[in-house]
């Protein structure tokens, strides 16, 4: 599928008034909202930089996924992307891997996979480093306390 946006596209938020247009359209259609309108709003939300918006976007996407089977394959990618933006790498990877299984040639999904791996590796290492650093600090403090206690 050549018509999927790359992850970089999700990083550029819409202007507030543009998002407002999408939101107004979505709210206007009420209960009988069309898929496209729903998606437009969801994608606008995911592009946003505020975390609650992104979460709402992912929720809408999962709605679309549930309700319209013919759009599931596309939604998979957007779900992966949305979850990636949210930092839910486990979910992102779950959806993306599934999509890659279905469409091994999907460039966007491939690049997203790379991005996810990257992020996980980096943040994981940082996390490990932080934990390690804390342990070291605790050790130092502990040993100092121990030493001071001993000195007394």
């Amino acid at each position: 599928m050549s018509t999927l946006p790359y992850a970089a596209d999700a990083e550029s938020p819409l202007k507030p008034e543009e998002l407002q247009v999408l939101r107004a359209q979505y709210e206007k259609e009420g209960d009988y909202v069309g898929i496209q309108t729903k998606f437009n709003y969801a994608w606008g939300l995911i592009k946003s930089s505020s975390r609650p918006d992104q979460q709402e976007g992912v929720r809408l996407l999962s709605d679309i996924f549930r309700n319209s089977p013919e759009r599931r394959r596309e939604c998979l990618y957007y779900l992966a992307l949305g979850n990636y933006k949210l930092g839910n790498y486990a979910e992102a990877r779950r959806y993306n891997d599934l999509l890659i299984d279905l469409e091994p040639a999907n460039l966007q999904a491939g690049s997203l996979k790379g991005l996810i791996d990257d992020k996980v590796a980096k943040e994981g290492l940082v996390g490990a480093a932080i934990v390690g650093g804390l342990a070291v600090a605790a050790g130092i403090v502990g040993s100092m306390l121990f030493k001071s206690a001993r000195r007394r």
Partner: peptide
């Protein structure tokens, strides 16, 4: 359960 899609346009195009 993910069927092959036969849509005339993708959602992103629609967007």
């Amino acid at each position: 359960n993910i069927p092959q899609d036969h849509n005339a346009y993708s959602l992103f195009q629609g967007f």
